[in-house]
Design a protein around this nucleic acid. Sequence first.
DNA 1: AGCGTTGCATAAAACGATTTACGAAGCTAG
DNA 2: CTAGCTTCGTAAATCGTTTTATGCAACGCT
Lengths: 339, 339
Amino acid sequence: MAAHRNVTIKDVAARAGVSITAVSHALNDKGTLAEETRRRIREIATSMGYQADALARGLRRSRIGVIGIVLRPLDALEDYSPPGVDYFLRFAGAAAVSALGHGLSLMQVADLVKGPVTPLAFSLDGYVVTDPVRDDPVVDLLESRSIPYVTLGRDPGKPQAANWVASDDAAATRTALDHLAEHGAHDVAFVGGTDDNSWNADAEEAYLHWCAARGSTPRLFRSPERLGETGGRELVPRLLDGGVPDAIYSLTGRHAAGIQEAMRERGYTAPEHYLLACGTDAEQTRTAEPPITAIDLRPEVLARETVALLAQITRGESPAGRRLVASELIVRRSSQRGR
Amino acid sequence: MAAHRNVTIKDVAARAGVSITAVSHALNDKGTLAEETRRRIREIATSMGYQADALARGLRRSRIGVIGIVLRPLDALEDYSPPGVDYFLRFAGAAAVSALGHGLSLMQVADLVKGPVTPLAFSLDGYVVTDPVRDDPVVDLLESRSIPYVTLGRDPGKPQAANWVASDDAAATRTALDHLAEHGAHDVAFVGGTDDNSWNADAEEAYLHWCAARGSTPRLFRSPERLGETGGRELVPRLLDGGVPDAIYSLTGRHAAGIQEAMRERGYTAPEHYLLACGTDAEQTRTAEPPITAIDLRPEVLARETVALLAQITRGESPAGRRLVASELIVRRSSQRGR
DNA sequence: AGCGTTGCATAAAACGATTTACGAAGCTAG
DNA sequence: CTAGCTTCGTAAATCGTTTTATGCAACGCT
């Protein structure tokens, strides 16, 4: 238990009676060693429990087997485990697991452009950046350091960006709106966030198109993500201006929960007086009374695709990758009414 | 955008017309440089956007500013984002945030003793190991590599272990049992897990003592954590042997949820026919119908204490630290009955 | 003049790997 | 016999820092 220096390549070389070069070559399948020598060295290395020091190796190779993940919406919130928002945790968890499958590990990194940043930040092999905002400074920073990255959701300011994975938000929005319409809604109000990312942008645009196609007048509202339930509650008076809407489609779970509460306080409940659906599944949508119909963005699938793409890129293959992942509507009581 | 080599200490030295030693000393407040020189070098370094390479620095200093976290119960589950278990995610999230406060960052590491391990694993500054089992191999491994660590929950096999933080599970158990008794329960059945960690051990022991003190006959059940809701459901026939218990205290949230469901299917609901409480708060306990009384282990507080202790140790100060954190009972409908 | 301080700065040796370039045998062909 | 080619290994440079040991003035003192 004494402060026991770990076994280094030098120790292995000494024990095997060869040079450290030989050991390195044997272990990495390089050079021109005789097969027999290779085998012998490997055997000795294993028996000594040798494991190459990741730092030293990284210094030479400039790859350390770790990728970073930056959750931009949480950077904006300045809270990395906000109550009720489990999408990001599910995504990050799934990403970590996927990374392991590629021999990588994953490290969550707090806002790269603010304050003191983790020392390792610029030595990582690559980054997953979720929901970048328009011309995101984090993306610029990575770009300027030429660190590879994949965004989850497009950077709305860079339509030509090469590598991203995204949920098919336009399709998901249409599915949700159609569902509300099927259950009798003519007039659907839309509540989005204010972060300038592709999730908000694509959903809004799809909503406007949908309204135009049906000849209905859009009623579009926005509330900062940061305000959460409170933001939802405060929107209700405006939502009720000009009568109770047939249905409300709220992008974020926390807004939806706030809206539902404030509506109930005024005597309006779903699905009796209006229909309610939400653009992302969250603890609130599952546990509200009644439970709220929501879109499952399938963070596990998104994570798998995102990490796979990044892994490919860090390995040097760099096939421009743009992958769209279909989401799924989970129908719950808040939007179901006999037709 | 060209593959732009990052600015190194050598570049700074060249620009400032001094040796690299001078730059290193200026930036780390070492050596005997003139104050004026120091200032000038620092200025140039900042203006060039110099940032020391973490790998190279780590290689010398053998500290890289990253700590690892190992969630043993999830290792056992082989699922790092199991549904409904938010305690670990809350803990890990809070730990990450706390780590930042100490200038460290946190990396989640999957089972250190199984399969290929992340290359960086043995170069980290230290580890948080949650809920080690008796003579945990991960703890042994860290010990043998002399990597500092703090456990969350004691290793039941090492009563003399120096550094741990834990929730006061004995007290919490008594509080919950007393609460059930106050609401009229005489005969409380106890359902624990099978992992041999201090959480299970301390709660069981407290339960047995409590029964002994009151002269009631203990009814102790165990079900593997891994079985989750199913495990809870399957326990119900045995729980009902010899009549419906006044109350059931289940340690894990998933067991509790399964028990509640299977009981309802047989026509027994809480709090009408029996009282129900749970040893940890989880999505299920909050959202079940009725919601289940549960103990909030306060993962945020635990995380803060654990990381603070580890940070101290990695800084070289190593005050043996054993800290007990009080948890809090959240009373919900499942255990409330007019007396 | 000689000597010990003091103050400032640097050269060089680590840290632990990978990679490049070269060298010593042994063999073959002319 | 020797030039040339394999085959098998190794020496040394390198990655970017930190740290240790040393060097060189200038100064004050006897």
